[in-house]
Amino acid sequence: MIRHAFARAYLGLILIFLYAPIAVMAVMSLNASEFYALPFRFSTEWYERLFTNDEILAAAWRSVWIAVVVAIIATALGTMATLALWRHDFPGKRILQALLFPPIAVPWLITGTAMLIFFFGVGIGRGTPAVIIGHVALALPYVIVTVFARMQSFDRALEEAARSLGARPLTVARKVILPHAAPGIIAGALFAFAVSFDQFVVSYFLAEPGDSTLPVLIYSAIRKGFTPEINAVSTIIILISMAVMVLAARYAKFGGTR
């Protein structure tokens, strides 16, 4: 039992390490002093200022809609590809699956700079379209992996049963396969949203200055010097992305803790 007490204490310390800075940031975003002076005096001034700061609001809005667009495209393309990978066996399938890893495994710095070079070369240039193209590519593997994991629990006999009852392939897909895949697709969409919404590195190289996403704006703001407004907007961001992930985790947890 002493071992269990130790274990819980250790876990507690790790959680403190993980959450304390975020908590400090959240608290400071509600502190009246611009220089984080203590004692703490409660104030919502920085949030109020935030909502009158057009630059931040515009970037926030851009971040959200880009993430939504990315989630829609990546989920559609990813789900289609997953169904093909799951449903059919064909030569080269393993290669196709292996090709999903470069976007995850190659550091974003390399991917981001490579995209910058290429998009410039073919005339897309920097800007929101480039950002969306890049984000979708980063999100696709996550969608495919998530939906594929969900389909692993699909009993092929169900499909055969439906066919034996006279259902045509398209009906089977609509009435049997897609309903089963639904939680995986929702989780995949949320992952894709999170990948895009939280993406900094690739956005940083692809976004046009003055037309940037929220993380890019925050980065340049921090490099100029902290302001409590950045605290406030950061606190909001982290709350949103954590909420999205809690949702995704609920959908992704299709049976078992794996």
């Binding site: 975020i22 902290f226 961001i237 992305s241 954590m242």
Partner: peptide, 25 residues
């Protein structure tokens, strides 16, 4: 389940913001 989610959650939240929070600390 709850603890596991708590540990994994920050990893899925904004990396830039988390680094920034350390700057404050």
């Amino acid at each position: 389940e709850v603890l596991f989610l708590l540990v994994i959650l920050p990893f899925w939240s904004n990396a830039l913001v988390r680094v920034f929070s350390w700057a404050i600390v």
